[in-house]
Design a binder for these strands. Sequence first.
DNA 1: GCCGCCATCAACCGATCGGCTGATGCGCAT
DNA 2: ATGCGCATCAGCCGATCGGTTGATGGCGGC
Lengths: 213, 213
Amino acid sequence: MTDRTISLLIVDDHPVVRDGLRGMLASEPGFDVLGEAAGGVEGVELALRLDPDVVLMDLRMPAGSGVEAITELTRRGVRAKVLVLTTYDTDADTIPAIEAGATGYLLKDAPRDELFTAVRAAAAGRTVLSPAVASRLVSVVRKPAAPANEALSAREHEVLELVARGTSNREIARELFISEATVKTHLTHLYGKLGVKDRAAAVAAAYDCGILG
Amino acid sequence: MTDRTISLLIVDDHPVVRDGLRGMLASEPGFDVLGEAAGGVEGVELALRLDPDVVLMDLRMPAGSGVEAITELTRRGVRAKVLVLTTYDTDADTIPAIEAGATGYLLKDAPRDELFTAVRAAAAGRTVLSPAVASRLVSVVRKPAAPANEALSAREHEVLELVARGTSNREIARELFISEATVKTHLTHLYGKLGVKDRAAAVAAAYDCGILG
DNA sequence: GCCGCCATCAACCGATCGGCTGATGCGCAT
DNA sequence: ATGCGCATCAGCCGATCGGTTGATGGCGGC
């Protein structure tokens, strides 16, 4: 990695935070803050005009949310890498931000050095995640294996698969060479096992615990 | 976090690597290597007997793969955190390891300091991922967003979410403060967009193309 | 042998759904 | 200004679903 100067854009609704970041980055050689924005909309505009290497993006802002801004930047194929820098690490924030295309996700309580490292990494296109965020991501990946599937019988499973394809009970009956009454019995049983009350919810539950997919 | 000594178990089939790690960890105060194993099976046995804080685990080994070993340790509820330390960063290795319960995943080309940091983080139960691994995880999470959703409107999406939870049209109407007729209209529209003919299939289609999940 | 689980079927009923037709108002783009 | 997409609503009807109750037979475990 060359030690070329990394140009930055700061997007945060708090002037104090913007100043703090600017000061912190100024104290370290190799960083050049091109500009600041106080909201997502303005952030996107500036990113387009200034073409920074890295955008430091807050998530929760009054004037255009960070996630929307990231989505917009991604959609427009902007070269800049987005490093999310926020106070929150809830699923509701992290996952969408990452899905939207953030290159990294740091919490604001990260030490200086970590911030510098993260900015350099982001500039190089490498992903950097705060431990807390990494944990969440991991748990998202890990979850699917966990939930206790109160084992569906083979027949119930077959019926459920057909249900997921929009097949009516009568059609399922014909398909499986059984009567419609039997199909309904299987359904009633699997509703109980999945803890749901109709076919739509059964399909959702099945996807959630990996029975379908 | 206290600066208590962290006890370790090294599991790797290469003596050279084991020696290297042991030496590296010996040079830094606060680490105590309790033992070494050359394969997954032996690793599990030693982990059970020595009860280390952290297990440094290679993945590809002749005598019992790392993933199997991690699975076994997780299954037995072993206290030790597993830090995967390997040369490979392919999906085929990383994802299963994380699913199996690894607390962290480092590549062997990581610098000394990063290793120390990662071991301390793992001991504290925090997740540490190599940038390359983090990228992969992120891409796994990000992928589902890709498929061409013939964009559902916001309202349709809301309705669909409720449908997936087993909510009836009447209940959805109450929930969204609209009439049942409107709910049905939204449904009819989204059936069209998803190319399905009932709510169960709509839920399935939504999961398949990442609209729900 | 008895019990539990699975698979199969029947008949009935009220609730719900899906399709259809048609209508209004809003915002946005050309 | 005209049209398009979205959200909103109404009424009607046949089809479908879900719940209930009850029954039969096979298979495997204790």
